[in-house]
Design a protein around this nucleic acid. Structure first.
Lengths: 294, 294
DNA sequence: GTTAGTCATAGACATGGTCTATAGCTCCTG
DNA sequence: CAGGAGCTATAGACCATGTCTATGACTAAC
């Protein structure tokens, strides 16, 4: 049988001990002096131990009261800290936002949002957790991230998905293949050239493979890389034709170090999506982030 | 404006988080599930932060809930320890008893009580604080000791004094003065011999000095010592006639290494008194001690 | 589909905390 | 020495708030 007093009594005890006066404690707690007197009496009765000496100038702790106070003071400090922390979390002066997704989306699409967010809420720690789409979904379900940023489509009824920007993938090449600039290639012809693709397990790779298959072709890359940066770099160096997201090579297209190769078929657009868990309350930090990107 | 929730809510939160179930928390707290549900809602509303995910198997903490729990758990542990400590103090499994008084009273009079007390309440730490009577009274008033054991009379209306045993002081000598055994001396004659007295600031010394003065004599010791043991030892060695408490030399009188010198006047008895502060609650430990010696 | 387990909500109820009023006490002051 | 200004304790009325019962909605498992 564990004794378990009303914790509220300890709050009263704390203030009475701290101020050395029931009257002062009452003021601190927005109560009247008899209420405090009563509360202290309850506590004393519950222990069967006198906690305060009452004298004409107020109260002072007995030996036992001092012992109790040594515990309650620490306890009170912890609770105060907790309350401050909660207020900070609420005001977004503190907290963390954990985002999952691919490095390329982080770098080429999310970065401005992240900068904006960080400027608005400098107290929030940002955790970027890169991984493949299935990994990101698992992380979300395990509660290891708050938001996932991946390519659509996502079909999972545990998740709530919001559309982000629409991206267009395309084939690009550097000056080595300058003769192709301005022409319109067929799939068949394109496959004569060395192709550089993103690694096998990515969404984009799967999509382009399926597209070619639906036309009866098999697209087999000469080079397979794991980052968008390498995709761009290799194309510039003339190692082949890269399949990249047009928006991610906007700068290179602009300055002419890369050019887009026109195909006679329309390449599928890809949609960025933000995923959060359905039916799970969003953390304040995550909620504000979603507001920002919408 | 410091937010200050009802601490009782944190107790509910603690159990809900610990058990991962509002229903289980309700059982632990001898409440119903709706009460717990309501309490948690209050807490969440007060912070404006969701603390738990509700699912069909119970509840689990959100990010923010985990943070809150990290504080509240520690706080709860402290309060539990405090309650255990209070229970221990009440049962006298723990605590301390601080007694002030003279070494001689501790050794020759209080020792059996202290042994008895220690056996009954082995958890109580005993502090013996030796000093003169005025010092002991000061210590008592400063709250540095719980009980004082001194010679009466004590006149101080801040103190409550209880009578202890009555002691009889007397003059004793060793075999060197064997010729005095069986005779009855006058004061005048006694003063012809070397006298050994306790140091100037003691009660006993003051009392005997006053007694001799009231008969027109001045008693001036050859030797002045600071402990009863030396008083006894010097008398045995034949260095003079010691004025000691008869009860403290019972063994020596019995075995014949000392004998009492009869005077033609009655020497004043001295009463041992226990002092405690009036109008101040006694600690449990001190209360039991007083019970024992009464 | 049924059952058994979650938690949430609504509304009635009553416990218990809070209040006002007053008394008793000590200390200080004119 | 009387009076005032502190302090805490006590008594009793009151009502707010915490608790209950009853019910609903939902999920998971059988």
């Amino acid at each position: 049988m564990s004794m378990t007093n009303n914790y509220e009594l300890y709050k009263v005890f704390y203030w009475a001990a701290k101020t050395g006066s029931l009257t002062q404690a009452a003021k601190a707690l927005y109560l009247t002096q008899p209420s405090v007197s009563h509360a202290i009496k309850q506590l004393e009765d519950s222990f069967g131990i006198t906690l305060f000496y009452r004298n004409s100038k107020g109260v002072s702790l007995t030996q036992e009261g001092v012992i109790l106070y040594s515990y309650i003071e620490k306890s009170h400090i912890l609770i105060s800290l907790a309350e401050e922390k909660m207020a900070a979390l609420k005001k977004l002066d503190s907290g963390e936002l954990r985002i999952g997704g691919s490095d390329s989306l982080f770098k080429h699409y999310l970065l401005p949002y992240l900068e904006d967010y960080h400027q608005k809420y400098p107290g929030i720690k940002l955790h970027l957790n890169h991984g493949t789409t299935p990994e990101t979904i698992s992380f979300l379900k395990e509660g290891r991230i708050d938001v996932g940023v991946v390519r659509m489509p996502i079909v999972d009824d545990q998740l709530q998905v919001m559309r982000g920007i629409q991206l267009q993938d395309c084939f690009v090449a550097g000056s080595r293949y300058a003769e192709l600039q301005g022409t319109v290639l067929s799939m068949e012809l394109l496959l004569e050239y060395p192709i550089i693709l993103f690694s096998r397990n990515s969404r984009v790779r799967m999509a382009i493979t399926e597209l070619f298959q639906s036309y009866g072709y098999e697209i087999k890359p000469e080079i397979e890389v794991g980052s968008v940066d390498l995709l761009i770099e290799f194309a510039r160096k003339g190692l082949g034709i890269s399949y990249v997201t047009r928006e991610f090579v906007a700068k290179e297209l602009e300055e002419g170090s890369l050019f887009e190769i026109q195909l006679d078929v329309k390449l599928p657009p890809s949609q960025v999506g933000f995923m959060i868990m359905r039916n799970m309350p969003l953390s304040n930090a995550a909620g504000k982030f979603i507001d920002l990107v919408k």
